[in-house]
């Protein structure tokens, strides 16, 4: 399972990450957003039989620490 986070503005640096299985069926990973703004996280999953799944999760209004 892999992650990719993109800003809502094209051309900005995306960030990538991998998720590890921490329990059967549960995956955990982390992403560090490079800047404030609206982000969209794309989750890419490859199933054991080779099929792929994708999901989009909106993360709006990320602010700096």
């Amino acid at each position: 399972m892999g992650f990719e986070a993109d800003m809502s503005h094209p051309g900005m640096t995306p960030v990538f990450g991998e998720a590890q299985e921490v329990a059967p069926g549960q995956y955990q990973g982390s992403l560090e957003f490079a800047m404030a703004g609206d982000w969209v996280v794309l989750i890419h999953v490859t199933l054991p039989d080779g099929r792929t799944l994708g999901r989009e999760v909106s993360v709006p209004g990320v602010t700096t620490n």
Binding site: M7, S8, H9, A36, G37, P60, G61, V62, T63, T64
Partner: peptide, 12 residues
């Protein structure tokens, strides 16, 4: 300034 690009300032 730190960059910040969003279209949702009221919700964010």
């Amino acid at each position: 300034q730190p960059m910040d690009m969003r279209g949702t300032f009221l919700a964010g």
